[in-house]
Amino acid sequence: MKHLLDFQDWDRTSLEGMLETTQIMAEVLDRPVKKVPALQGFTVCTAFFENSTRTRLSFELAARRMSADVLTFTASTSSTTKGESLKDTLETLEQMKIDLFVIRHSASGAAHLASRWTDARIINAGDGRRAHPTQALLDAYTLKQHFGKLEGLEIAIVGDVKHSRVARSNADLLVKLGAKVRLCGPATLLPKELEQPGVRVTTNLQEALEGANAVMALRLQLERMSTGYIPSLPEYQQTYQVNFKNLKHAAPDAIIMHPGPMNRDVELEGNLADSSRSVILKQVENGLPVRMAVLYHLLVGKK
């Protein structure tokens, strides 16, 4: 595969191969010397048209750990604020002989458009509400690490599903890998059209959590109140906050996940996020080997 835009064209075997490579990369990161020459001579450019320092740093460190040269382009310090288009920007950057772009953009489909406009490889680091495939991969890896398998797991994803690329990508990937997904949130933030084989949609939190092996809370943008999607923060907390109280409906060994950044005590009870049930920091840690694996697969191919 040339690009990682979403999971549409990826089959289960290559996705499982990616998780295996992630395992190898994680072992590299456990060594005293954490750098390998795998991508020496390759140039990776992170092109972030929407701010996300954490994701960008994770990609850049992943590329550097494999000895690639890294260029950073962020829109706030660049020509796009002067009116240059996405296409012009990419075409200009490509003249610097970029082998791979990591693209973050506020519009769904931006990474797809980019793949048509450049010969370089593309990793979608988040496009609008559509996809965030490396986040889903690191979630899948974290789940596999914890449970030893994905087949048969029941994953509840709770919150602002409508605006969430994390929810869409996880629903795609986890189902491909044999898990089942329940999407849950207030009706205004939960498109019923996302229901498909392996994906259940419900506005009832208890129903979503019933017997779930993992519960992922999604960040609630506080602007959802001012734009009239939900009535108030207290009502949201009361109805959809993932906390110790409603976690009792889930499987006894259920784990807690969050893609970050978290609104502590809004979508997720802070003490629960800090508890032994939480794998949130593990998710962050796994971001690095996952991104190393994806970079390696796209630039060098299967090992």
Binding site: S108, G109, D127, A131, R165, E193, L194
Partner: peptide, 10 residues
């Protein structure tokens, strides 16, 4: 608005 827009996240 429909199945396609929700899937595409538009």
């Amino acid at each position: 608005e429909g199945e396609v827009s929700e899937r595409l996240g538009l």
